[in-house]
């Protein structure tokens, strides 16, 4: 078992040294029929620091195109923002869905 772990480590090392760039993650919002527009705008402004017109435009994009990228971040930030959004949606009983995509 220990042997296997060592091999795994070695493999990992090779990959990371090859790929020196840290990838970005896209945060996407998916459209649904229950989450209010106001809520989405508020989330975009407060968590994603969008200006009111930007937030409005993004919300409409989600509405018409079913999904839209609301931000691109490093993984740790993307994850945290996604969780913050989901928590806020849950508190307000909205079924908003957030998806992360590696670039």
């Amino acid at each position: 078992m220990e042997q296997r772990e060592l091999e795994q480590d070695a493999a990992e090392e090779i990959i990371t040294t090859e790929d020196k760039k840290i990838p970005n993650y896209k945060v996407l919002f998916l459209n649904d029929d229950f989450t209010t527009m106001d809520f989405v705008v508020a989330v975009l402004m407060h968590i994603f620091h969008k200006s009111p017109p930007e937030a409005e435009a993004l919300m409409l994009k989600i509405h018409t195109e079913e999904r839209a990228v609301v931000g691109i971040y490093h993984k740790e930030i993307a994850e945290t923002k996604a969780r913050q959004t989901l928590e806020a949606a849950e508190r307000n009983n909205f079924p908003l869905k957030v998806v992360l995509e590696k670039e």
Binding site: D9, E13, T16, T17, K20, I22, H74, K75, K102
Partner: peptide, 19 residues
């Protein structure tokens, strides 16, 4: 163990492994 994070990347850059 955290992939795609700068902290892990940096440690690896300093040739630090789990071992």
């Amino acid at each position: 163990e955290e992939s795609d994070s700068y902290a892990a990347y940096l440690l690896k850059e300093f040739n630090l492994t789990k071992n």
